[in-house]
Amino acid sequence: MNVLTTFLNALPGNVSQGLIWGILAIGVFITYKILDFPDLTVDGSIGTGGAVAVMLITNDCPIWLALLCAFAAGCLAGLVTGLLNTALGIPGILAGILTQLALYSVNLDIMGQSNRPVSVDKYPLVLSSRYAVPAMIKSMLIVAVIIAILYWFFGTEYGFTIRATGCNSNMARAQGISTKKSTVIALILSNGLVGLSGGLLSQYQGFADVNMGRGAIVIGLAAVIIGEVLGSVIFRKRFNFVAKLAFAAIGAIIYFLVLQLVMLLGLSSSNNKLFSAIVVIIFLAVPYLRNSSKTSFKKAAKNAAAVKGDVNNA
C-alpha cells in the first residue's frame, strides 16, 4: 500500500519527466525509425540544450528565447553529425559518437563548470519539478504542439524526401532526391528536438549538468521501442504516423513510471542506467526470440522425418 501511495503521489512528476524525455524520444524516432540512422549525437545534444538554456536564463534572457536557442544549439549539433557523415564519409554511428564526445567539452565550455543551477525561485521557468501538476500539463501541451508540427512537416514535400531517403535511398535518388541533404535535415530536426528537451529538462530538474546526457540515447530508444510495441498491439494496422509519434512520448512516460516502480521496490538509483540497458535489451530481444521460435533449425530438425544416420538428433 505504502508503495502504491508513494507511486501515485509521484505520478505527475514522473509523467512530466516522461513527457520531457518524450520530446527527445520523438527526436530519436525521426533518426532511428524514419531516417534509419542510429544517431548517437543525442547524448551530447541534450546536454548542449540544457547548458544553453540555463546559461541564457541565468543571464536574464526570456525563457522562450532560451528554449529557442536550446533548439538551435541542438540543430547545430545535428548539422555537425550530418556533415561528418555526408560530406566526410564517416559512418553514421561513428559520426554521432564523435559529435557526442566533442559536445562534452563544448557543454563544459558553455557552462564554465560541470554543473549550473537554475532556481525556479529566481527565474520564471516554464516548468519545475516543484510544481509537478502544472509541469505535467505544460509538457503535455508542448508535446502535442510538437506532434502537430511534425505531422504537418512529414506531410510536406520535404518530409516526403526524408521518409523516402530512410526507406530506400536508391529509390530516393532515382526520384531526384538528394539523400545527403535529407539526411542532414533529418539530423538537424531530430537534434533540435533533443536540444529543446534538454532545455526543458534542465528547468524541470533545476540545473544543467555536463553528465545529464549520459545514456540519453538508450532512454530514447527504450521509449521508441516500448511505444512501438504498445502502439502496434493497440492499433494494429491502424497505427498511423501521429499515433507513432505520440507513442514515442507515451513510451517515455511508461519508461519513467516503471523506473519509479522498480526503484520503489528497491532498485538503487545508481542502478538506473543498468535498468535502461536491460529494458532496451528485453524489448529488442523479445520480438527476435519470438520470431526465431517460429522458425529455427531446432524446429526444422524436429519436423524432419527420422532418417537413418540422422545427425540432427545425434
Binding site: E157, Y158, T161, Q175, I177
Partner: peptide
Amino acid sequence: LAARRGNPRGLRW
C-alpha cells in the same frame, strides 16, 4: 514522389 522528380521540393504538401 515520382511526380516531383526534377522539381525543387519545399514545404508544400
